[in-house]
Design a protein around this nucleic acid. Structure first.
Lengths: 236, 236
DNA sequence: CCTGCGATGAGAATAGCCTTCTCTTCAGAT
DNA sequence: ATCTGAAGAGAAGGCTATTCTCATCGCAGG
Protein backbone atom coordinates (compact mmCIF):
# COMPACT_ATOMS: atom_id res chain seq x y z
CA UNK A 1 0.00 0.00 0.00
CA UNK A 2 1.76 3.20 -1.22
CA UNK A 3 1.82 6.34 0.83
CA UNK A 4 -1.02 8.68 0.10
CA UNK A 5 0.43 11.04 -2.46
CA UNK A 6 -2.19 13.63 -3.13
CA UNK A 7 -3.45 13.94 0.39
CA UNK A 8 -1.70 16.80 2.14
CA UNK A 9 1.77 17.37 0.75
CA UNK A 10 2.23 20.97 -0.34
CA UNK A 11 6.02 20.91 0.14
CA UNK A 12 6.81 18.29 -2.54
CA UNK A 13 4.07 19.47 -4.89
CA UNK A 14 5.44 21.99 -7.44
CA UNK A 15 3.29 25.06 -7.50
CA UNK A 16 3.30 25.32 -11.26
CA UNK A 17 1.71 21.92 -11.53
CA UNK A 18 -1.09 22.93 -9.27
CA UNK A 19 -1.71 26.02 -11.29
CA UNK A 20 -1.67 24.11 -14.54
CA UNK A 21 -4.11 21.59 -13.27
CA UNK A 22 -6.24 24.31 -11.82
CA UNK A 23 -6.36 26.07 -15.17
CA UNK A 24 -7.25 22.87 -16.94
CA UNK A 25 -9.91 22.22 -14.42
CA UNK A 26 -11.59 25.56 -14.30
CA UNK A 27 -13.18 25.34 -17.72
CA UNK A 28 -14.53 21.90 -17.06
CA UNK A 29 -15.94 23.05 -13.75
CA UNK A 30 -17.75 25.88 -15.43
CA UNK A 31 -19.31 23.61 -17.97
CA UNK A 32 -20.37 21.27 -15.24
CA UNK A 33 -21.99 24.06 -13.30
CA UNK A 34 -23.91 25.16 -16.32
CA UNK A 35 -25.21 21.66 -16.77
CA UNK A 36 -26.23 21.43 -13.17
CA UNK A 37 -27.96 24.74 -13.52
CA UNK A 38 -29.94 23.51 -16.49
CA UNK A 39 -31.06 20.47 -14.55
CA UNK A 40 -32.15 22.62 -11.65
CA UNK A 41 -34.06 25.00 -13.84
CA UNK A 42 -35.83 22.23 -15.67
CA UNK A 43 -36.80 20.68 -12.40
CA UNK A 44 -38.23 23.92 -11.15
CA UNK A 45 -40.25 24.35 -14.29
CA UNK A 46 -41.69 20.90 -13.86
CA UNK A 47 -42.53 21.59 -10.24
CA UNK A 48 -44.26 24.78 -11.21
CA UNK A 49 -46.20 23.09 -13.96
CA UNK A 50 -47.20 19.90 -12.23
CA UNK A 51 -47.43 21.23 -8.71
CA UNK A 52 -45.73 18.12 -7.48
CA UNK A 53 -42.31 16.62 -7.04
CA UNK A 54 -43.57 13.47 -8.66
CA UNK A 55 -42.04 14.07 -12.04
CA UNK A 56 -39.63 11.47 -13.35
CA UNK A 57 -35.95 11.88 -13.77
CA UNK A 58 -36.52 11.19 -17.42
CA UNK A 59 -38.69 14.27 -17.67
CA UNK A 60 -36.00 16.46 -16.20
CA UNK A 61 -33.50 14.99 -18.58
CA UNK A 62 -35.69 15.43 -21.63
CA UNK A 63 -36.59 18.99 -20.80
CA UNK A 64 -33.04 20.01 -20.11
CA UNK A 65 -31.92 18.40 -23.36
CA UNK A 66 -29.36 16.35 -21.57
CA UNK A 67 -29.01 12.71 -20.72
CA UNK A 68 -29.59 10.33 -17.87
CA UNK A 69 -25.93 9.56 -17.93
CA UNK A 70 -25.15 13.17 -17.30
CA UNK A 71 -27.78 13.57 -14.66
CA UNK A 72 -26.33 10.85 -12.49
CA UNK A 73 -22.89 12.21 -13.13
CA UNK A 74 -23.86 15.44 -11.43
CA UNK A 75 -26.35 14.32 -8.83
CA UNK A 76 -26.37 11.41 -6.48
CA UNK A 77 -29.96 10.95 -7.48
CA UNK A 78 -33.29 12.63 -7.71
CA UNK A 79 -33.25 13.10 -3.99
CA UNK A 80 -30.12 15.23 -4.03
CA UNK A 81 -31.55 17.44 -6.69
CA UNK A 82 -34.72 18.04 -4.74
CA UNK A 83 -32.72 18.71 -1.63
CA UNK A 84 -30.74 21.35 -3.46
CA UNK A 85 -33.92 23.06 -4.61
CA UNK A 86 -35.38 22.77 -1.15
CA UNK A 87 -32.49 24.46 0.57
CA UNK A 88 -32.54 27.13 -2.04
CA UNK A 89 -36.21 27.78 -1.57
CA UNK A 90 -35.85 28.06 2.17
CA UNK A 91 -32.88 30.34 1.88
CA UNK A 92 -34.85 32.61 -0.42
CA UNK A 93 -37.75 32.47 1.92
CA UNK A 94 -35.50 33.42 4.80
CA UNK A 95 -34.16 36.37 2.89
CA UNK A 96 -37.65 37.66 2.20
CA UNK A 97 -38.65 37.31 5.79
CA UNK A 98 -35.57 39.04 7.05
CA UNK A 99 -36.13 41.91 4.70
CA UNK A 100 -39.78 42.30 5.53
CA UNK A 101 -39.26 42.20 9.26
CA UNK A 102 -36.31 44.55 9.12
CA UNK A 103 -38.66 47.22 7.87
CA UNK A 104 -40.45 47.28 11.21
CA UNK A 105 -39.03 49.26 14.07
CA UNK A 106 -41.12 47.76 16.85
CA UNK A 107 -39.65 44.33 17.75
CA UNK A 108 -43.05 42.79 18.29
CA UNK A 109 -44.32 44.11 15.01
CA UNK A 110 -41.24 42.77 13.30
CA UNK A 111 -41.91 39.37 14.75
CA UNK A 112 -45.53 39.56 13.73
CA UNK A 113 -44.59 40.39 10.17
CA UNK A 114 -42.17 37.50 10.11
CA UNK A 115 -44.75 35.07 11.44
CA UNK A 116 -47.41 36.09 8.99
CA UNK A 117 -45.06 36.05 6.05
CA UNK A 118 -43.75 32.61 6.87
CA UNK A 119 -47.30 31.46 7.30
CA UNK A 120 -48.25 32.69 3.86
CA UNK A 121 -45.16 31.20 2.33
CA UNK A 122 -45.81 27.81 3.86
CA UNK A 123 -49.44 27.91 2.87
CA UNK A 124 -50.47 25.62 0.00
CA UNK A 125 -51.94 28.42 -2.02
CA UNK A 126 -54.36 27.43 -4.72
CA UNK A 127 -52.62 28.81 -7.76
CA UNK A 128 -49.04 28.85 -6.70
CA UNK A 129 -48.11 25.46 -5.40
CA UNK A 130 -45.02 25.10 -3.31
CA UNK A 131 -44.47 21.37 -3.26
CA UNK A 132 -41.02 21.87 -1.92
CA UNK A 133 -42.52 23.15 1.29
CA UNK A 134 -45.04 20.40 1.65
CA UNK A 135 -44.54 17.38 -0.52
CA UNK A 136 -40.85 17.07 -0.26
CA UNK A 137 -40.27 18.71 3.09
CA UNK A 138 -42.39 16.15 4.86
CA UNK A 139 -40.82 13.24 3.10
CA UNK A 140 -37.49 14.58 4.10
CA UNK A 141 -38.57 15.08 7.66
CA UNK A 142 -39.07 11.37 8.02
CA UNK A 143 -36.01 10.08 6.25
CA UNK A 144 -33.40 12.77 6.74
CA UNK A 145 -34.30 14.98 9.67
CA UNK A 146 -30.79 16.35 9.88
CA UNK A 147 -30.97 17.75 6.38
CA UNK A 148 -34.25 19.40 7.18
CA UNK A 149 -32.73 20.97 10.25
CA UNK A 150 -29.89 22.29 8.17
CA UNK A 151 -32.22 23.72 5.59
CA UNK A 152 -34.34 25.33 8.29
CA UNK A 153 -31.37 26.94 9.91
CA UNK A 154 -31.53 30.27 8.07
CA UNK A 155 -35.14 30.80 9.01
CA UNK A 156 -34.57 29.56 12.51
CA UNK A 157 -31.85 32.13 12.98
CA UNK A 158 -34.12 34.94 11.93
CA UNK A 159 -36.80 33.99 14.37
CA UNK A 160 -34.26 33.44 17.06
CA UNK A 161 -32.94 36.94 16.51
CA UNK A 162 -36.36 38.50 16.39
CA UNK A 163 -37.43 36.84 19.58
CA UNK A 164 -34.27 37.91 21.28
CA UNK A 165 -34.84 41.48 20.25
CA UNK A 166 -38.40 41.36 21.45
CA UNK A 167 -37.15 40.02 24.74
CA UNK A 168 -34.58 42.76 25.13
CA UNK A 169 -37.25 45.30 24.43
CA UNK A 170 -39.19 43.81 27.29
CA UNK A 171 -42.07 42.78 25.11
CA UNK A 172 -41.85 39.15 26.10
CA UNK A 173 -40.32 37.57 29.17
CA UNK A 174 -36.88 36.05 28.75
CA UNK A 175 -36.63 32.45 27.67
CA UNK A 176 -34.45 30.45 25.37
CA UNK A 177 -34.75 32.18 22.02
CA UNK A 178 -33.40 29.33 19.97
CA UNK A 179 -35.82 26.81 21.39
CA UNK A 180 -38.70 29.20 21.30
CA UNK A 181 -37.93 30.00 17.71
CA UNK A 182 -37.96 26.31 16.98
CA UNK A 183 -41.43 25.85 18.36
CA UNK A 184 -42.76 28.96 16.72
CA UNK A 185 -41.38 28.01 13.36
CA UNK A 186 -42.76 24.54 13.45
CA UNK A 187 -46.12 25.68 14.64
CA UNK A 188 -46.38 28.16 11.82
CA UNK A 189 -45.19 25.90 9.07
CA UNK A 190 -47.22 22.89 10.02
CA UNK A 191 -50.33 24.83 10.83
CA UNK A 192 -50.14 26.46 7.44
CA UNK A 193 -49.48 23.17 5.75
CA UNK A 194 -52.04 21.07 7.57
CA UNK A 195 -54.80 23.64 7.41
CA UNK A 196 -54.18 24.78 3.93
CA UNK A 197 -56.75 22.56 2.34
CA UNK A 198 -60.39 22.58 3.37
CA UNK A 199 -60.18 18.96 4.47
CA UNK A 200 -63.42 18.36 6.31
CA UNK A 201 -66.00 21.04 5.87
CA UNK A 202 -66.66 21.54 9.56
CA UNK A 203 -63.17 22.85 10.21
CA UNK A 204 -62.38 26.14 8.60
CA UNK A 205 -58.65 26.67 8.14
CA UNK A 206 -56.65 28.34 10.83
CA UNK A 207 -55.79 31.93 10.01
CA UNK A 208 -52.46 33.70 10.16
CA UNK A 209 -53.86 35.92 12.88
CA UNK A 210 -54.72 32.95 15.05
CA UNK A 211 -51.31 31.45 14.63
CA UNK A 212 -49.69 34.75 15.46
CA UNK A 213 -51.65 35.15 18.67
CA UNK A 214 -50.95 31.58 19.63
CA UNK A 215 -47.24 31.94 19.10
CA UNK A 216 -46.94 35.32 20.74
CA UNK A 217 -48.63 34.07 23.84
CA UNK A 218 -46.72 30.86 23.62
CA UNK A 219 -43.35 32.54 24.02
CA UNK A 220 -44.54 35.14 26.44
CA UNK A 221 -43.87 33.04 29.49
CA UNK A 222 -42.07 29.95 28.36
CA UNK A 223 -40.38 28.84 31.55
CA UNK A 224 -38.07 25.97 30.76
CA UNK A 225 -35.74 25.71 33.69
CA UNK A 226 -38.09 24.65 36.49
CA UNK A 227 -37.82 20.87 37.04
CA UNK A 228 -41.56 21.05 37.63
CA UNK A 229 -42.44 18.04 39.71
CA UNK A 230 -45.96 18.14 38.44
CA UNK A 231 -46.32 21.19 40.63
CA UNK A 232 -46.44 23.32 37.56
CA UNK A 233 -49.98 24.31 38.24
CA UNK A 234 -49.09 26.01 41.48
CA UNK A 235 -45.97 27.82 40.42
CA UNK A 236 -45.31 31.34 41.72
CA UNK B 1 -82.26 -1.59 -20.28
CA UNK B 2 -84.24 -3.33 -17.49
CA UNK B 3 -85.42 -1.48 -14.44
CA UNK B 4 -83.07 -1.61 -11.51
CA UNK B 5 -84.30 -4.51 -9.46
CA UNK B 6 -82.23 -4.59 -6.31
CA UNK B 7 -81.91 -0.89 -5.79
CA UNK B 8 -84.53 0.35 -3.36
CA UNK B 9 -87.71 -1.68 -3.59
CA UNK B 10 -88.71 -2.98 -0.17
CA UNK B 11 -92.42 -3.25 -1.11
CA UNK B 12 -91.99 -5.85 -3.84
CA UNK B 13 -89.10 -7.57 -2.08
CA UNK B 14 -90.35 -10.52 0.02
CA UNK B 15 -89.00 -10.36 3.52
CA UNK B 16 -88.12 -14.03 3.62
CA UNK B 17 -85.78 -13.55 0.70
CA UNK B 18 -83.94 -10.81 2.49
CA UNK B 19 -83.57 -12.96 5.55
CA UNK B 20 -82.40 -15.91 3.54
CA UNK B 21 -79.79 -13.87 1.77
CA UNK B 22 -78.75 -12.28 4.99
CA UNK B 23 -78.26 -15.69 6.58
CA UNK B 24 -76.26 -16.86 3.61
CA UNK B 25 -74.17 -13.79 3.78
CA UNK B 26 -73.35 -13.67 7.44
CA UNK B 27 -70.98 -16.61 7.43
CA UNK B 28 -69.12 -15.35 4.43
CA UNK B 29 -68.79 -11.98 6.04
CA UNK B 30 -67.31 -13.52 9.13
CA UNK B 31 -64.74 -15.43 7.16
CA UNK B 32 -63.84 -12.29 5.28
CA UNK B 33 -63.37 -10.38 8.49
CA UNK B 34 -61.08 -13.02 9.82
CA UNK B 35 -58.95 -12.79 6.74
CA UNK B 36 -58.84 -9.03 6.95
CA UNK B 37 -57.83 -9.37 10.55
CA UNK B 38 -54.95 -11.64 9.66
CA UNK B 39 -53.72 -9.16 7.12
CA UNK B 40 -53.88 -6.36 9.62
CA UNK B 41 -52.06 -8.31 12.26
CA UNK B 42 -49.32 -9.36 9.90
CA UNK B 43 -48.88 -5.79 8.83
CA UNK B 44 -48.57 -4.65 12.40
CA UNK B 45 -45.97 -7.27 13.11
CA UNK B 46 -43.98 -6.12 10.13
CA UNK B 47 -44.23 -2.52 11.22
CA UNK B 48 -43.06 -3.43 14.67
CA UNK B 49 -40.15 -5.44 13.35
CA UNK B 50 -38.95 -3.16 10.60
CA UNK B 51 -39.91 0.12 12.16
CA UNK B 52 -41.15 1.31 8.85
CA UNK B 53 -44.16 1.15 6.59
CA UNK B 54 -41.85 0.25 3.75
CA UNK B 55 -42.58 -3.45 3.78
CA UNK B 56 -43.95 -4.96 0.60
CA UNK B 57 -47.41 -6.27 0.07
CA UNK B 58 -45.81 -9.58 -0.71
CA UNK B 59 -44.39 -9.70 2.78
CA UNK B 60 -47.76 -9.16 4.35
CA UNK B 61 -49.20 -11.86 2.17
CA UNK B 62 -46.46 -14.35 2.94
CA UNK B 63 -46.62 -13.77 6.64
CA UNK B 64 -50.35 -14.04 6.82
CA UNK B 65 -50.25 -17.24 4.79
CA UNK B 66 -52.67 -15.87 2.32
CA UNK B 67 -52.43 -14.73 -1.25
CA UNK B 68 -52.05 -11.59 -3.25
CA UNK B 69 -55.32 -12.39 -4.89
CA UNK B 70 -56.99 -12.34 -1.53
CA UNK B 71 -55.26 -9.21 -0.37
CA UNK B 72 -56.59 -7.14 -3.20
CA UNK B 73 -59.97 -8.71 -2.77
CA UNK B 74 -60.18 -7.20 0.71
CA UNK B 75 -58.23 -3.98 0.38
CA UNK B 76 -58.15 -1.36 -2.31
CA UNK B 77 -54.43 -1.47 -1.94
CA UNK B 78 -51.59 -1.10 0.47
CA UNK B 79 -52.65 2.43 1.14
CA UNK B 80 -56.05 1.44 2.43
CA UNK B 81 -54.54 -1.07 4.77
CA UNK B 82 -52.18 1.48 6.24
CA UNK B 83 -55.00 3.93 6.58
CA UNK B 84 -56.98 1.40 8.54
CA UNK B 85 -54.09 0.80 10.90
CA UNK B 86 -53.51 4.51 11.20
CA UNK B 87 -57.04 5.31 12.22
CA UNK B 88 -56.95 2.47 14.64
CA UNK B 89 -53.75 3.68 16.22
CA UNK B 90 -55.09 7.17 16.64
CA UNK B 91 -58.33 5.93 18.10
CA UNK B 92 -56.40 3.87 20.61
CA UNK B 93 -54.21 6.80 21.37
CA UNK B 94 -57.25 8.95 21.92
CA UNK B 95 -58.70 6.43 24.32
CA UNK B 96 -55.53 6.39 26.36
CA UNK B 97 -55.40 10.13 26.51
CA UNK B 98 -59.00 10.42 27.52
CA UNK B 99 -58.52 7.91 30.26
CA UNK B 100 -55.36 9.49 31.59
CA UNK B 101 -56.76 12.97 31.63
CA UNK B 102 -60.03 11.88 33.17
CA UNK B 103 -58.07 10.87 36.25
CA UNK B 104 -57.24 14.49 36.97
CA UNK B 105 -59.72 16.69 38.75
CA UNK B 106 -58.12 20.02 37.99
CA UNK B 107 -58.97 20.97 34.40
CA UNK B 108 -55.57 22.48 33.77
CA UNK B 109 -53.82 19.43 35.13
CA UNK B 110 -56.01 17.24 32.96
CA UNK B 111 -55.00 19.23 29.94
CA UNK B 112 -51.38 19.04 30.94
CA UNK B 113 -51.55 15.29 31.25
CA UNK B 114 -53.18 15.04 27.87
CA UNK B 115 -50.55 17.22 26.25
CA UNK B 116 -47.66 15.33 27.72
CA UNK B 117 -49.13 11.96 26.87
CA UNK B 118 -49.81 12.89 23.29
CA UNK B 119 -46.31 14.25 23.10
CA UNK B 120 -44.84 11.00 24.27
CA UNK B 121 -47.03 8.99 21.96
CA UNK B 122 -46.04 11.05 18.97
CA UNK B 123 -42.41 10.91 19.87
CA UNK B 124 -40.21 8.66 17.73
CA UNK B 125 -38.93 6.70 20.65
CA UNK B 126 -35.76 4.75 20.08
CA UNK B 127 -36.98 1.27 20.82
CA UNK B 128 -40.64 1.49 20.07
CA UNK B 129 -41.08 2.96 16.64
CA UNK B 130 -44.42 4.31 15.67
CA UNK B 131 -44.11 4.69 11.94
CA UNK B 132 -47.82 5.15 11.65
CA UNK B 133 -47.49 8.42 13.46
CA UNK B 134 -44.59 9.67 11.44
CA UNK B 135 -43.84 7.84 8.25
CA UNK B 136 -47.32 7.29 7.07
CA UNK B 137 -49.07 10.20 8.74
CA UNK B 138 -46.93 12.70 6.92
CA UNK B 139 -47.33 11.01 3.59
CA UNK B 140 -51.03 11.07 4.14
CA UNK B 141 -50.98 14.70 5.13
CA UNK B 142 -49.78 15.62 1.68
CA UNK B 143 -51.94 13.37 -0.43
CA UNK B 144 -55.11 12.92 1.55
CA UNK B 145 -55.50 15.68 4.11
CA UNK B 146 -59.15 14.93 4.58
CA UNK B 147 -58.42 11.40 5.75
CA UNK B 148 -55.90 12.73 8.21
CA UNK B 149 -58.45 15.15 9.55
CA UNK B 150 -60.90 12.33 9.99
CA UNK B 151 -58.38 10.19 11.78
CA UNK B 152 -57.40 13.07 14.03
CA UNK B 153 -60.97 13.78 14.96
CA UNK B 154 -61.12 11.62 18.10
CA UNK B 155 -58.05 13.26 19.57
CA UNK B 156 -59.17 16.66 18.47
CA UNK B 157 -62.43 16.19 20.33
CA UNK B 158 -60.65 15.33 23.51
CA UNK B 159 -58.52 18.41 23.44
CA UNK B 160 -61.44 20.49 22.46
CA UNK B 161 -63.35 19.24 25.49
CA UNK B 162 -60.44 19.69 27.83
CA UNK B 163 -59.85 23.22 26.70
CA UNK B 164 -63.50 24.00 27.09
CA UNK B 165 -63.50 22.69 30.60
CA UNK B 166 -60.41 24.65 31.46
CA UNK B 167 -62.10 27.72 30.08
CA UNK B 168 -65.22 27.18 32.12
CA UNK B 169 -63.10 26.78 35.19
CA UNK B 170 -61.65 30.17 34.44
CA UNK B 171 -58.17 28.82 33.97
CA UNK B 172 -57.83 30.20 30.49
CA UNK B 173 -59.69 33.01 28.82
CA UNK B 174 -62.49 32.04 26.46
CA UNK B 175 -61.63 31.41 22.85
CA UNK B 176 -62.68 28.97 20.21
CA UNK B 177 -61.96 25.56 21.70
CA UNK B 178 -62.08 23.64 18.47
CA UNK B 179 -59.61 25.87 16.74
CA UNK B 180 -57.39 26.13 19.75
CA UNK B 181 -57.39 22.37 20.08
CA UNK B 182 -56.36 22.14 16.48
CA UNK B 183 -53.34 24.33 16.98
CA UNK B 184 -52.37 22.65 20.21
CA UNK B 185 -52.62 19.20 18.71
CA UNK B 186 -50.57 20.06 15.71
CA UNK B 187 -47.97 21.80 17.72
CA UNK B 188 -47.57 18.83 19.98
CA UNK B 189 -47.50 16.19 17.31
CA UNK B 190 -45.16 17.96 14.98
CA UNK B 191 -42.87 19.17 17.67
CA UNK B 192 -42.55 15.64 18.96
CA UNK B 193 -42.02 14.29 15.50
CA UNK B 194 -39.59 16.88 14.24
CA UNK B 195 -37.52 17.00 17.38
CA UNK B 196 -37.49 13.33 18.06
CA UNK B 197 -34.17 12.67 16.46
CA UNK B 198 -31.03 14.49 17.49
CA UNK B 199 -30.70 16.02 14.02
CA UNK B 200 -27.99 18.58 14.41
CA UNK B 201 -26.03 18.39 17.58
CA UNK B 202 -26.43 22.03 18.50
CA UNK B 203 -30.18 21.69 18.96
CA UNK B 204 -31.23 19.48 21.81
CA UNK B 205 -34.75 18.17 21.36
CA UNK B 206 -37.67 20.13 22.66
CA UNK B 207 -39.07 18.68 25.85
CA UNK B 208 -42.63 17.86 26.75
CA UNK B 209 -42.48 20.53 29.42
CA UNK B 210 -41.56 23.20 26.93
CA UNK B 211 -44.32 22.23 24.60
CA UNK B 212 -46.80 22.25 27.44
CA UNK B 213 -45.84 25.73 28.54
CA UNK B 214 -45.94 26.96 25.00
CA UNK B 215 -49.39 25.55 24.38
CA UNK B 216 -50.83 26.65 27.69
CA UNK B 217 -49.71 30.19 27.11
CA UNK B 218 -50.76 29.94 23.52
CA UNK B 219 -54.39 29.37 24.37
CA UNK B 220 -54.43 31.57 27.40
CA UNK B 221 -55.30 34.68 25.46
CA UNK B 222 -56.04 33.60 21.97
CA UNK B 223 -58.16 36.50 20.81
CA UNK B 224 -59.38 35.72 17.35
CA UNK B 225 -62.03 38.32 16.68
CA UNK B 226 -60.15 41.55 17.31
CA UNK B 227 -58.57 42.89 14.12
CA UNK B 228 -55.68 43.68 16.42
CA UNK B 229 -54.04 46.74 15.00
CA UNK B 230 -50.70 45.85 16.53
CA UNK B 231 -52.04 46.89 19.90
CA UNK B 232 -51.66 43.35 21.12
CA UNK B 233 -48.40 44.09 22.85
CA UNK B 234 -50.02 46.36 25.37
CA UNK B 235 -52.71 44.02 26.59
CA UNK B 236 -53.88 44.36 30.19
C1' DC C 1 -2.77 16.89 -37.71
C1' DC C 2 -3.26 13.24 -34.51
C1' DT C 3 -4.18 10.95 -30.20
C1' DG C 4 -5.91 9.97 -25.82
C1' DC C 5 -9.07 10.96 -22.17
C1' DG C 6 -12.81 12.44 -19.70
C1' DA C 7 -17.48 14.07 -20.28
C1' DT C 8 -21.92 13.21 -22.99
C1' DG C 9 -25.67 11.42 -25.50
C1' DA C 10 -28.80 7.63 -26.51
C1' DG C 11 -31.02 4.18 -24.89
C1' DA C 12 -31.00 -0.66 -23.32
C1' DA C 13 -30.89 -3.32 -19.13
C1' DT C 14 -31.73 -4.01 -14.18
C1' DA C 15 -34.22 -4.06 -10.08
C1' DG C 16 -37.95 -3.26 -6.76
C1' DC C 17 -42.71 -2.40 -6.15
C1' DC C 18 -47.67 -2.41 -6.51
C1' DT C 19 -51.42 -4.17 -8.95
C1' DT C 20 -53.94 -7.18 -12.17
C1' DC C 21 -54.83 -11.42 -14.45
C1' DT C 22 -55.16 -16.48 -15.41
C1' DC C 23 -55.85 -20.86 -14.06
C1' DT C 24 -56.92 -24.10 -10.44
C1' DT C 25 -58.65 -25.63 -6.24
C1' DC C 26 -61.74 -25.86 -2.60
C1' DA C 27 -65.52 -25.07 0.77
C1' DG C 28 -70.06 -24.31 1.54
C1' DA C 29 -74.92 -23.49 0.06
C1' DT C 30 -78.93 -25.43 -2.30
C1' DA D 1 -74.35 -33.96 -6.15
C1' DT D 2 -73.75 -29.74 -8.22
C1' DC D 3 -72.87 -25.00 -8.61
C1' DT D 4 -70.94 -20.68 -7.22
C1' DG D 5 -67.90 -17.68 -5.46
C1' DA D 6 -63.79 -17.05 -2.71
C1' DA D 7 -58.89 -18.16 -2.34
C1' DG D 8 -54.07 -19.97 -3.59
C1' DA D 9 -50.10 -19.80 -6.78
C1' DG D 10 -47.65 -17.39 -9.52
C1' DA D 11 -46.99 -15.08 -13.97
C1' DA D 12 -47.47 -10.68 -16.20
C1' DG D 13 -47.93 -5.60 -16.62
C1' DG D 14 -46.53 -1.02 -15.63
C1' DC D 15 -43.96 2.53 -13.55
C1' DT D 16 -39.61 4.40 -11.67
C1' DA D 17 -35.03 5.10 -10.25
C1' DT D 18 -30.60 3.73 -11.14
C1' DT D 19 -26.81 1.53 -13.69
C1' DC D 20 -24.48 -0.01 -17.76
C1' DT D 21 -22.82 -0.16 -22.64
C1' DC D 22 -21.25 1.85 -26.57
C1' DA D 23 -20.58 5.45 -29.75
C1' DT D 24 -19.33 10.61 -29.92
C1' DC D 25 -17.40 14.78 -29.05
C1' DG D 26 -14.36 18.49 -27.34
C1' DC D 27 -10.18 19.63 -26.25
C1' DA D 28 -5.30 19.74 -24.37
C1' DG D 29 -0.74 17.92 -25.42
C1' DG D 30 2.48 15.82 -28.77
Amino acid sequence: MPVTAAAAEPPVEPAWRQRAVERSTRAAKLRAEQRVQRFLESAQELIAEKGTTDFTVQEIVDRSKQSLRSFYQHFDGKHELLLALFEDALATSAAEIREASAAESDPVEALRVAVELLFRQSHPDPGVQRPLFSDFALQLLVKHPAQVATAHLPILMIFSDLIEQATEAGAVVPGKPRRQANLVMQTIMFAAQANGVPADSHASPVTAEEVWQFCLNGISTASTAAPAKASASKKR
